[in-house]
Amino acid sequence: MKKNIALLYRGMNSKVGELLANRLIPSISLHSVGAIVFLDHIYPVDLGHDNSPVPTGNYAHPHRGIATFSYVLSGSLSHYDSRGNHATVGAGGLQWMKAGNGIIHDEKPFTRKKDSPVFHSLQFWINLPGGAKQEKPEYMALQAADVPEAQLPDHGGAIRILLGEFGLWASPVPTFNREFIYHVRLNPHSRFSFSPKDDDEVAVFVPAAEVVINGNMIGNSKILLMEEGTKEIVFENDQINVADILIFGGQPYGEPIVMEGPFVMNRFADIATAYRDFFAGSYGTIIIP
């Protein structure tokens, strides 16, 4: 019997540049979780020791109205944008870019010589409040060591606070709608109980190894939307390897949502303006060395 589960979804394959991804949000059944309106799971891919962080520019693209959030599970990722920001992060690191009133960016997966040749990542889009959609773009990169991490009870593993707050810990990444993203590393034969805030929308994503969530076995790149008012989510890892679990969500987004291509706005007229400004060149140009 399923407990507190509103939706279980396996996603749909999509190409992201040359990479294959599982697109989990949006879908016909799931448009958003809190302010999070997009989730791509970039499947593990062997890059063959491609150690160049410099993109070709062929996949550069614009955004307006959202913050992009890229989290690297293995390998490395570089970022270049039209506001002059540039950084690279390794496994366990993340990149946050507030597109605000318009930006163009390009991301390049690669592997350092000390890394495994496998690249594996997630990308979320966070819908900004209407006022923040008109603000100037911002960018932040965190390496793995910069991400707050708390230990779970009974040697159960760790929880990494990628975005938002958890108890005494808080990510330095800005939030707008009490959005949160946590990465739980659940040790073998361990259990962890999570209590959401009363009015939060909450989803769980398990990229690989299967775990038991409120009595149901879930894994292999599936997303689980919890019912409204769920008081407790219990995770159990009966396997002999560490299990990765992403918990995310936040307060319901209270404004209209209009999403088309790389733009997420509050009105159709704003989408038209976003395209017009992009074609007029107001988002700037990426300078790649």
Rank of each mutant, 00 (worst) to 15 (best):
N4H: 14
I5C: 07
I5F: 10
L7P: 00
R10S: 14
R10V: 11
N13S: 15
G17I: 05
G17F: 05
E18H: 09
L20T: 13
R23G: 01
I25V: 13
P26T: 12
P26K: 10
G34N: 07
G34Q: 05
I36C: 09
H41E: 01
Y43M: 12
V45Q: 13
V45N: 12
G48E: 12
G48C: 13
N51H: 14
Y59H: 11
Y59F: 15
A60R: 05
A67G: 08
S70W: 04
V72G: 02
S76F: 07
L77S: 01
R83M: 10
N85K: 05
T88H: 04
G92I: 07
G92D: 00
G93R: 04
W96Q: 05
M97G: 02
A99T: 02
I103V: 15
H105N: 01
K113D: 12
K114E: 15
D115N: 04
P117H: 10
V118R: 03
F119A: 01
G131L: 07
A132G: 00
K133W: 04
K133H: 13
Q134A: 12
K136D: 14
E138T: 15
M140S: 13
P148D: 05
P148M: 11
E149K: 15
P153L: 09
G156L: 11
L162E: 02
G164V: 06
F166H: 06
W169T: 03
W169M: 07
S171K: 06
S171Y: 07
P174I: 05
R178C: 06
E179A: 08
Y182P: 01
V184T: 02
N187F: 13
H189A: 09
D198M: 03
D198K: 14
F205M: 01
F205H: 02
P207C: 03
A208H: 03
E210I: 04
V211M: 07
V212C: 09
N214Y: 13
I218F: 14
I223P: 00
L224M: 13
M226S: 10
E227V: 10
T230E: 06
V234P: 04
D238R: 15
Q239C: 00
A243S: 15
I245Y: 13
G249T: 09
G250E: 02
P252V: 11
E255A: 11
P256G: 09
F263N: 01
M265A: 10
N266P: 09
R267F: 15
F268M: 15
F279I: 08
F279Y: 14
F279W: 11
G281D: 02
S282A: 14
S282R: 15
Y283D: 13
T285K: 12
I286Y: 04
I286D: 12
I288S: 10
